[in-house]
Amino acid sequence: MNRHMFLMLAGAMSVALPAIATAQTELTVYTAVEAVDLDRYKATFEKSHPDITINWVRDSTGVMTAKLLAEKDNPQADVVWGLAATSLLLLKTEGMLEAYQPKGVEALDKKFVDKDNPPSWVGMDAYVAALCYNTVEGEKLGLKAPKSWDDLTKPEYKGHVIMPNPASSGTGFLDVSGWMQMWGEEKAWSFMDKLHENISAYTHSGSKPCKMAGAGEAVVGVSFEFPGAKAKSAGAPIDIIFPTEGSGWEAEATAIIAGTANLEAAKTLVDWSVTKEANEMYNAGYAVVAYPGVAKPVEHLPSDIAAKMIDNDFEWAANNRATILKEWQKRYDAKSEPKS
C-alpha cells in the first residue's frame, strides 16, 4: 500500500473534521421546502443578516421527520424551517422544540401559530388539499370533472382515483384529518369506505397522485395545490379543483430545536421567518401564507384558496393520528390487496 492510498484510507475512515471556526454563526437548518426555493430563501435571509450562514439539510417531509425523531437524543439541527406543522407537533410532544415567541408573531394569522404560549412553532405558508383532474383522459372516458369530495365516490370514477396513503404521506393524512374535522368521524369513515371502492392506488408520496393524473396514469389525483400548479406549467392537461366542501391543509412551519448551541442566531432566524418580507418570499410558490394580506395569486391557482381551508386543529390531528391510522389500515390496507 503506498502512502497516498494510506492517507486516503485514513481520510475516509476518520470522522468529519469539525468545521473551521469563523466569526460567522453557522446554522444547521433542516427543511422540507422545495429544492428550487432553497437558494432563494437562503440568499434573502442572509442579505439582511450577513453574520448568519444557513446550512441547509433538505429532504422530503417524511424522511425529514424520521431523521429528526431518530436524532432525538442527539439533535444535529439548530432550526427547522419549512416542515409540516403536524411533524413539528410530533417533535414538540417528544420535547424536542424550544418554545419561543418570535418578535412580530402577533401579525400572523392565528391559524398559523402554535396554540401554546410561548409557541413552539410558527407557520410560514399552507398547502391545501386539491384535486388534479386530467381533462384528456376524463374526456376519453366520458367523465365529468368532480366538483366536490362527494363526487369522487360516484361509481363512474371506479379505478380512476388515486390518493396518498395517509399512513406514509403527510398529505394523505391531512386529507383524512380534514374530512374528519369537517364531517365528524362517522361520516368521514363512511365517505372513505365509498371512496376506497374507487381508488386505484394509494401512493407513498403526496405529490405523486397529481403527477400521476398529469401523466394520465390516473384521472383524478387527490393531492395538494402546489404540485398541481407545477405539473400544469410542465404541460400536464389537468385542472386543479378545490372541492366545494372545503379542504384540509397543512402549514409549513418554523421551530427552534431545543438544546441548540446557537440559540441567539436561531431566534434571529425565526424572528425573520415571520416578517412580511419573508412571507412575500414564501408567496412565490405558495398561494396561502401566514401573514394576512401579503399573498398575491399564483399562476394556475385561484386567488381564494384561503377561503377553502377548514379550521384545522393540529393538536387534535397529532393526538389522534395513531388511532386514525390504525383504523385506516385495518379498513383499507387489508382490503386493498388485489382480489385476483
Binding site: G62, V63, T65, A66, L69, A70, L90, N165, A167, S168, S169, H204, L325
Partner: peptide, 10 residues
C-alpha cells in the same frame, strides 16, 4: 420502508 420512513415506526 413504509414502517420506518412513512410512519417512523422503527
Amino acid at each position: 420502508y413504509k414502517q420506518v420512513i412513512g410512519q417512523q415506526n422503527f
